[in-house]
Amino acid sequence: MSDLIKLVEAEDAEARKNYPDFKAGDTVNVHVKIREGNKERVQQFRGTVIQRKNPNTNGETFTVRKVSNGVGIERIFPILSPNLDKIELVRKGKVRRARLYYLRGKQGKAARIKERI
């Protein structure tokens, strides 16, 4: 049966190819479409990717964390959401795990991530 699911998901998998290949630790700039009444505008959300969940399925999401005015903010985006305009890869990070939950407990200098070249 899971093969049948793959058939259905195959069409959506094409959409995924429009995005850069990013992973946990990378800094991304996510352009999100926001609808206000009839108007539509694009908002940017820039931060560190701390995880990608359920990879290569229609339910795949990624979490972006940023610190705004001293408050940590995390947003979870479904990667196939039509509300995503585009994803820019700003900086690649060198990390040793796939889920960077440890960043939540760190501030300032301690929350830095080395660049991957």
């Binding site: 699911i5 259905v8 229609n58 339910g59 196939l80 959401s81 039509p82």
Partner: peptide, 19 residues
């Protein structure tokens, strides 16, 4: 089960059936 997005951008859980 899997999920599909509708035209409003809502994520709808769904089941695939061979009929």
């Amino acid at each position: 089960m899997t999920s599909l997005f509708d035209e409003n951008g809502r994520n709808i859980p769904c089941t695939v059936i061979e009929a």
